[in-house]
Write a protein that binds this DNA or RNA. Structure first.
Lengths: 144, 144
DNA sequence: ATTTTTACAATAAATCCGATAGGAAACATC
DNA sequence: GATGTTTCCTATCGGATTTATTGTAAAAAT
């Protein structure tokens, strides 16, 4: 029940881009150094985000990445769904209609559905901008 | 971000034990057949639960397992913590105090803490008895 | 041209998941 | 006490996933 490094790194990369937002592109090299993440591994995460109109890209000298939209337009849920594939805590919720062949009699399915909903509502309610704001504050935020 | 089969099977096993609660012990063979789970794999899950005063055990002829307490005394969170090791969505929350060496400046840590809290509060608020009750009802329960 | 940087593909190490297998120990019954 | 049933314990194992590393090609600015 862990979020993969892919998701965590993607989030940190976007936060970094948000913190260094300006007119210039930010190179992966800089992000990797600041965040202490392998640049090559970040290269692998970028295409996942790039598929969804999240980043603006420029190759070559002084190239790099920029956020395509203001930080308030990205939710954590949206980002994590891209990197994790799904936020569902059990695989049967990824199918529609939910469930395996036992779904009708499954005593745990409703509970999983509820957990899924709680997770989504929480993560979809937090934007990149919220992360930026809280970075300057104390450490007990986002307590619904 | 998936609950392992260990956790899901453990929960289904306990639900099965709760549904067949009586004076007699229930064998793994019966549970495995009813639930469509490998008996040998269930054997491996049992010791995880057994360490925590969850089951009563009897070996040999007509042996098997019983719940040690009434179903209302077990929370889903308690069971899943045993099988998953932890319910924290990121590893740094498993340490005390939470966080890696970047914790002080980590813009995502508070968000993870909040997610952790939301998950725990939800799962600790549901008992085995609740699962039994909902099995007889419709399928949109546990919506906080 | 040259340098910088992203883009893409292949590979590899490590870990974890989900399961299988075999035999030992305990217990009830006959 | 012999027998059959059932839990208990340990070892193994294939496969998938995670987490990278490496190398090369393509694009862009100067």
């Amino acid at each position: 029940m862990k979020i993969s490094t892919k998701g965590r790194y993607a989030l940190r990369m976007l936060v970094d881009l948000a913190q260094h937002r300006g007119t210039e592109y930010v190179s992966l090299k800089d992000i990797a150094e600041r965040q202490g993440i392998s640049k090559k591994y970040l290269e692998q995460i970028v295409p996942i985000l790039n598929s969804s109109d999240i980043l603006k890209t420029n190759r070559g000298f002084q190239g790099g990445y920029m956020l395509a939209k203001p930080p308030s337009k990205y939710t954590v849920g949206q980002i994590l769904r891209l990197t994790e594939g799904s936020l569902a805590p059990v695989a049967c919720l990824d199918e529609t209609p939910a469930g395996c062949e036992r779904a009708g009699e499954c005593a745990t399915l409703p509970m999983w559905k509820g957990l899924y909903k709680v997770i989504c509502e929480y993560l979809d309610g937090i934007t990149l901008q919220d992360l930026l704001d809280s970075a300057r504050q104390s450490q007990d935020n986002y307590v619904i």
